[in-house]
């Protein structure tokens, strides 16, 4: 069996690798990590910028899997399962380590659009669009950024996101809608106005 996944061939499904792992194949751990270490690290960095902490949690996660490998279930999506476990363990670890952890935020809490407009108008006209966008993101809550990441970077649907984050599907679409509306609503218009002006004058 070792030979089969020796080269981490992509045509071997996650489910297959997972069942090899459950069956005691050590090489499959390597395959799983080659596939998902980077995505997990990336997702984990949503919660903590302390990379070593995230790596520790990933390590403990897989150590836990090894310990109970024969009793593991068969998740529909291995990736989503790993994401969910990482999320839970990481949040727990951050609480334990007493690392400054943001308390669960209210879903309703969001940027005050009026303030944003003021903020944008107050900006130097020559300020770049990129700066404005990153400023806008600094207004978003961690949960909003997390939903955006899972939806648009990881291409997950609302059901999957709800499952990973342990919230209702409705909350997911609320969070998404509010964050994305920003592109539809007025402030983008203002933003673009600035852009054209600055282009004109540059």
């Amino acid at each position: 069996m070792d030979k089969v996944i020796e080269n981490h061939r992509e045509d071997i499904s996650d489910a297959m690798v997972w069942s090899l792992f459950k069956g005691g194949n050590d090489q499959s751990l390597n395959t799983l990590l080659l596939r998902y270490f980077r995505p997990l690290l990336h997702y984990g960095s949503r919660f903590s910028k302390d990379r070593s902490l995230v790596e520790d949690v990933i390590q403990d996660l897989f150590l836990g899997f090894l310990e109970k490998r024969s009793h593991l279930g068969d998740p529909v999506s291995v990736k989503n399962y790993l994401f969910k476990c990482l999320r839970n363990n990481l949040i727990r670890a951050m609480k334990e380590h007493a690392v400054h952890v943001e308390l669960p935020e209210k879903d309703e809490l969001f940027v005050d659009f009026e303030n944003i407009e003021k903020f944008l108008i107050g900006l130097d006209e020559s300020a770049e669009l990129a700066l404005k966008m990153s400023r806008f993101f600094s207004f978003l809550t961690k949960r909003q950024k997390e939903v955006l990441f899972l939806r648009y970077y990881e291409n997950l649907d609302n059901d999957e996101i709800a499952e990973i984050m342990g919230i209702s599907k409705q909350s997911v679409s609320n969070l998404l809608l509010k964050s994305v509306n920003v592109l539809r609503e007025n402030w983008v218009f203002i933003l673009l106005l600035f852009l054209h002006k600055s282009l004109l004058f540059s």
Binding site: H42, S45, M133, F137, Y152, Y153
Partner: peptide
């Protein structure tokens, strides 16, 4: 820009 802010940092 919106998307790049979402991805935010590649470990």
């Amino acid at each position: 820009l919106f998307l790049l802010n979402i991805a935010d940092g590649h470990p």
